[in-house]
Simulated assay, not measured.
Amino acid sequence: MAKRDYYEILGVSRDASQDDIKKAYRKTAIKFHPDKNPDNPEAEDKFKEAAEAYEILRDPDKKARYDRFGHQGVGGGGGAGGGMNMDDIFSQFGDIFGGSAFESFFGGAGGGRGQRMRKGSNLRIKLKLTLQEVAQGVEKKIKVKRYIPCDVCGGNGAKDGVAVSTCPTCSGSGQIRKVVNTMLGQMVSANTCPTCGGEGKTIDERCNKCHGEGRILEEEIIPVKIPEGVGEGMQLSMSGKGNVPKRGGIPGDLLIVIEEAEDEFLKRDGSNVIYDLHLSFVDVALGTNVEVPTIDGSVKIKIEPGTQSGKILRLKGKGIKEINGYGQGDQLIHLNVWTPTSLSDREKTVLNELKDSPNFKPNPRKSDKSFFERMKEFF
């Protein structure tokens, strides 16, 4: 099922400010929160949609990629909520009616930082694609080293995964609050608990495999589906395929930066493909049929007798599809007449006999259009 527009989901315009986006998300999240809509799958889908839309639009980089490339620019995918599940949403933003992140977001009494689910770091890789792969789309299998939850302790860092205690210093809040009396009244400050580092828990005995980190570094093969029409420098995002944080939390994302490998014959110009065709003046004078490469394989084209050097031929629809699905470019063939650099005595004799012929003399009154005039006809 095709995804809905993120701005439409939150009910804001494309030039909405971050404050407007935040307010719109709050309103939508409250309206469709599962606690207010029990046993309502449709409301749950809309709740997930809103969370995904806010996750993209609140981030300036992701928002810019979405504005330019649409859903494909921020990881593609389909279905309500994309790669986010309910645990992701509640962990990342908190529960509206109790989670600390949401309480803080809505202006309520925020809970301790240790109560909030942390998110791991993102991974960024470069992926080089051929022009054919860019034009046709491709599925790649990439090798990534990333932190995943420890399979022995289950990710909490404790031996056997059970020896975890509430921090005695902060009583599980993850923060130490101090009250200072000043001339203006009491000032309350909150700092990260030095004992548990803000986690609210302590480990009695560390896991032997991960040494208390709750994660291990492993190499993983990840299939990546690249859509048609991606471009140099474009960044795709795979949610949840980055590193997990220490001792539990949400994995970061895998960011894939596209690089285009130079093609031997073809050059890309936006959605168009350019090919320089070199022919002898005999071929262009008499006319000929030649094969030219395209992104879909070789095709045969006809060169009419008397075709002038610099002429541009167009192969309609032989370019690259737009990533947003609207339209496809063409292949433009730039015709160049090749002049031989060495001639035999016989060839020189023949050309000397022909050079005085009226047909071998250019006629200024019938001269071909300039290169720039010809280009204007195409753009």
Rank of each mutant, 00 (worst) to 15 (best):
V188Y: 01
S189V: 02
A190I: 08
N191D: 11
C193M: 12
G197A: 06
G198P: 05
E199I: 04
E199K: 13
I203K: 07
E205R: 11
C210H: 10
H211V: 15
G214R: 13
G214S: 12
L217S: 10
E219Q: 15
I222M: 08
V224Q: 09
E228M: 15
G231W: 08
E232W: 00
S237A: 06
S239K: 01
G240E: 09
K241M: 14
G242K: 00
N243W: 02
N243P: 04
V244A: 12
I250C: 06
I250Q: 11
G252W: 08
V257W: 11
V257K: 15
E260C: 09
D263G: 01
D263H: 06
F265G: 00
K267N: 10
D269R: 09
S271N: 14
S271E: 04
S271Y: 15
I274A: 03
Y275Q: 05
Y275C: 00
Y275M: 00
D276S: 09
V282G: 02
D283I: 00
V284G: 01
A285E: 12
A285D: 13
A285S: 14
L286E: 14
G287K: 07
V292D: 06
T294G: 03
K302I: 00
E304A: 07
P305H: 00
P305Q: 01
G306F: 01
G306S: 13
T307S: 15
